[in-house]
């Protein structure tokens, strides 16, 4: 089997959104996430010779990004004393519950599970979007993620509304099928 080759010139188009979603979910800061994605691409380029071709390009990039996220947290925790967990009485008196016992996480809360599940869902959707034909993916993202109006999209891409809705229809149908296979 021929080893896979890297195509850095396509990285931004193919993987930037996927990596960005991954990063945002972990650092919850869009600017920082942007930087991490950029650094990931640089690092990928620098260590391209280590790419053995036994993993898909995206999996390989994600593994680099993973390290970048860990490094980031290590860096912000490296100043002495920051790494230890400190619990103070809440400084703002508005906060509910004066006692520490009242501030611990609710053990019956499902929030954690939901957040994790939604994060995976986000990546699954991005994955499915990346399998769409380029044009459909662009239109779908503009409409669904950026929430742009039909008129603006038509102007920017120089298409007419019925064109746009046909593409949205095809994209949505494909996504339903893809998520059906990969998510449910």
């Amino acid at each position: 089997m021929a080893a896979q080759e890297l195509h850095p010139e396509n990285w931004v188009d193919l993987y930037a959104d996927y990596l960005f979603n991954y990063a945002v979910a972990r650092v919850s800061d869009t600017d920082l996430a942007k930087d991490l994605v950029q650094e990931t691409f640089y690092a990928g380029l620098n260590s391209a010779k280590n790419f053995k071709g036994d993993a898909a390009e995206r999996t390989w990039l994600i593994s680099i990004l993973k390290r970048k996220v860990i490094d980031h947290y290590r860096k912000i925790n490296s100043k002495k004393g920051k790494a230890e967990v400190r619990i103070n009485y809440s400084s703002d008196s508005d906060a509910e519950g004066d006692w520490l016992e009242q501030q611990v996480a609710d053990p019956f809360s499902k929030d954690g599970d939901n957040i994790m599940e939604n994060e995976e869902l986000g990546l699954a959707i991005q994955d499915c979007i990346s399998k769409l034909p380029q044009k459909q993916a662009v239109v779908f993202k503009m409409k669904t993620i950026q929430g742009m109006s039909t008129e603006d999209i038509c102007n920017e891409l120089d298409i007419n509304p019925s064109n746009l809705w046909v593409m949205i229809h095809r994209a949505r149908t494909a996504l339903m099928g893809c998520l059906n296979d990969n998510w449910f």
């Binding site: 959104d17 979603n21 869009t30 994060e119 869902l121 959707i125 996504l175 339903m176 998520l179």
Partner: peptide, 17 residues
Amino acid sequence: KNSELTSMCDRAGLTML
């Protein structure tokens, strides 16, 4: 299915560059 897709997209909090 279509409404499900919409709610999934909302839930997932998709972002893009």
